[in-house]
Design a protein around this nucleic acid. Sequence first.
DNA 1: GATTAATGTG
Length: 780
Amino acid sequence: MNLLIKSFCQSRRYLQSLFLYKKLLSISKPEISTFSSILKSCSSLPSLDSGLVNHGYLIKCGVLDSCVDVGNDLVLMYLKLGEFRDAHKVFDEMPMRSNKDVFDHMIHDLGSNHAYNDVVIAFENMVEFSIFPNVHSLCHVIKACSNLNSIKKGNFVHDFIKQNGFENHLLIMNSLISMYAKMGRLDLAQNVFNNMIHKDIVSWNSLITGFSQNHNSPKVFNLFKSLKQAKNPIPNVVTFLALLSSVREVTIGTTIHSHLITIGLYSNLQLGTAIFNMYAKCERLDYALIVFEQINKTLVSWNTLISAYKQKGYAQEAVDIYEHMLMEPDMKPDSFSFANVLPAYASLGNLKRIKLIHSMIIKQGVNIDQDVVLCTSILDAYGKCSDVKAAEFLFLFHCIQKPNTASWNAMISVYNSNNKIKNSMVVFQEMICSKVLMDCITMVTIFQSCGQMGLVKEGNMIHKFSLMKGFCSYLIVGNALIDMYMRCGSIKSAEIFFDLMSLRNIVTWNTMIYGYMKGGCFSMGVRFFHHMQLEYKPDSVTIISLLQGNSGSFLEMFHGYILKLGLDFETQIINILIDSYAKIGNVDKAQELFERNDFKRDQTSWNIMIAAYGMNGQGIESCKLFTKMHENGYRPDTITFTSLLSACSHSGLIEEGCKFFDLMVTKYKIQPSMEHLTCVIDMLGRANSLKEAYDLMKNMNYQKPVLGALLSACRTNMNIEVGELVGRKLLEMESDSFEYHSLLSNLYSLNDKWDEVVEIRRVFGNGKVVKKLGLSSLNS
DNA sequence: GATTAATGTG
């Protein structure tokens, strides 16, 4: 029975342990170690009543007089229950206080269990009862304050330290530096550091790391210089890790890299990872890859590589690396790998893989409830692939434990990208009510919501809100604000804010130009284009912005600007020109640019030219170019096939299109995207093979937007058989969708199936369908 | 029993 009680307690089944304990008392006297389990149960439940009863029993049977451990456990129980006076009383009355530092023990216990709040409370009570903590406890308390991010509590501990002569204690001072640094109070950290008479390498490292984590590179390098001048202590691995993460220029990085080779630290695994991460951040993925190949590969280094490629926008490469890693023996992805690769799959629109990873995460027993970062990553991935329900589910049932700023932002962004702006606004309001802090990205995202729906009134209110909170002085927020006003058609408001900005960048100018051109104010757009050149050289985004709206008739004029600026050698800009000429139907000019001898074609150029032929009805040329692209050593990607399939579908090349689709799936292993499937449905629809299309969808797990397209195709083809299958499936997935109800009942009505129309109308309930279809006679 | 330490989400 004693054993069973202990095991119940260990598996956190405290009620059962207490229940069994009561039974045990009626039979015999428990073992000493059982008391400790029971006291733990009382404090964990928590149940003060049971605690008091047990205390009484322990006094009655005299255990407390003979056994110090049980006494300590009793003190601990009262402390955890928040009954500090009782705890102190028991402590005071203990006849054998051989183990005086029960409080210190407890702080150690609580600290190791990350119960930071309790650590601080225990410490405050020690101070109140004049029990002197030891050095170890103080270190725990400092760490606890830092994790709680409470400057008030931190100051309290610091005062205690000053008043009690711990000021020359190296460990404690180092902990204080680190605490202030983690709170972002580098001023206070520097103060502590300056006042230290003896400093060791940890003191220096704590401060340097602090500045490095707060993105203050100049300070990091200055401190390093001082450290070298002081000649003592000698920099170590930790120093260089901080240094490397502050490097922004590849030349400096290379210097450190070679220095590390000279002093023989290069073989250090952590440093190796930090070195190639540094190269990746300095836009030198080529160097990064070389270093990665040189060092011993660990899970961390793989994860870092995936993250580097993903962050630089190379989603396909990130995915390839991840899949390569899976092939390595003994390399099992962890939550870092998943959080890194999910956004890559999301930007490739690969819902199937996202679901697969989600199930892998569950199978591996990773607890996403405890991992906000991972949960947010999955949520966002679903959102980007239009699975809003899955994203909502994750937010509500997993992130809800502790959604952070990023989770909230992700949820707003999910609604934005799926055109559910009303929901974006609701989430934003809920976010204001929650205790989570907002940041610049929150503001940028919510301005996107307003801009997308033209909600100028709301946008204006949130503008005031962010002025109040001080977000408007950040460039990204200001730029988003201008974009919002422009999209809402409030050009005047955008201009006023633009004039007031104390700091602008090229994005600011591009946003203004984009807004003017999109809004049809061509002459203002051109004026800004000229004006910006006093400060910035136009980039590809500027050119795209110029070519917005119905500015096609100005294309030749803009082409002239580009020539004058000498930008006609930049691949990205030529790509845009090809695309623009194609869009106004001048495929010859597009072809001329593409075939120019000095044009450095890239993958995108080929994709764009394939699409250019396609949108002008020259599907056969698209197919020829596809072959040529292949001959030139380019591997077609998902966008190539989007262009190719839509070219085939536009030009009625049904057989070719279906062949390319098979090629894409079987040879290139590319997961069909929504666009691919929509093209295929269109083609099969023309061939009146909608049943085949439906079977294809079955293998794609029925993605809603694609099914919607299929239903439309059925309506066009008057195919009631397949249409019914698809329509019913869609309504099964989203029964309240007006769009699907209306599509299905439209199909029925076209086939004169009026009973079904009425049934659909009855299920949907509010008569909207009928009204929209102009069938008001049925309403009466 | 203790202080700095390579990879993650929007």
